[in-house]
Design a protein around this nucleic acid. Structure first.
Length: 190
DNA sequence: CCAACGATGGTCT
DNA sequence: GACCATCGTTGGC
């Protein structure tokens, strides 16, 4: 079942935790979300929105449940789920998936057969799912005709969650805003 | 094994 | 012109 407005309306930290165990679905591709990071509007210098709205980060200030996809290091994309109040730039970065369906296409795009190397990082999972800037600012909510089929699907899993500091930042490194499913081997960094 | 580094281009100052 | 929410490769042990 696609998740709707109520699910995306919880606080950004709660959403980052609630997304663990849910599914990212796009066409015939499906992956279980196993690692996320929260980016907050207040007191978080690591957040793209921390110095105000710019053309790039504008989707973060929009409604919860939209996507925020950005291009990084000249060759990779990262997928976020916008969260928090409209007008305050917050989002959850999807950092890793456990591949569930559509492995053959993921393997072709990632140029590797190893399941653990298909979606175990924010750039990797966008490559495996074919997510680019064209998928920026799309509505993930159920019933949206313009979302291209990209959505988050529910599950009953209640995973055991580990919390650590976030990966790869040069500001806000000390905040405990990274979450992953305990003992899941598809996480990007242990 | 793992630390270091280069690729590569959009974004903001 | 500097920075960057990354990744694959390289070269040392």
């Amino acid at each position: 079942m696609p998740l709707g407005k109520k699910f995306f309306s919880q606080s950004t930290v709660d959403l980052a935790r609630a997304l663990l165990g849910k599914y990212l679905v796009y066409g015939d591709l499906r992956g279980k979300i196993v690692e996320t990071e929260a980016y907050l509007y207040h007191d978080d210098p690591g957040c793209h929105a921390s110095r105000g709205m710019t053309p790039r980060n504008a989707p973060m200030f929009g409604p919860a449940g939209h996507t925020y996809v950005y291009f990084i290091y000249g060759m990779y994309h990262c997928l976020n789920v916008v969260s928090g109040k409209t007008g305050e730039g917050e989002a959850v970065l999807i950092r890793a998936l456990e591949p569930i369906e559509g492995l053959a296409l993921m393997q072709k795009r990632r140029k590797t057969a190893k399941a653990k190397n298909l979606c175990s990082g924010p750039g990797k999972l966008c490559q495996a799912f074919g997510i680019t800037r064209k998928h920026n600012n799309l509505n993930l909510l159920e019933g949206s005709p313009l979302n291209g089929g990209l959505h988050i699907a529910n599950s009953r899993e209640k995973p055991e969650i580990v919390c650590t500091t976030r990966i790869g930042l040069s500001a806000g490194q000390d905040l405990p805003l990274r979450f992953y499913i305990k003992d899941n081997t598809f996480v990007s960094v242990f």
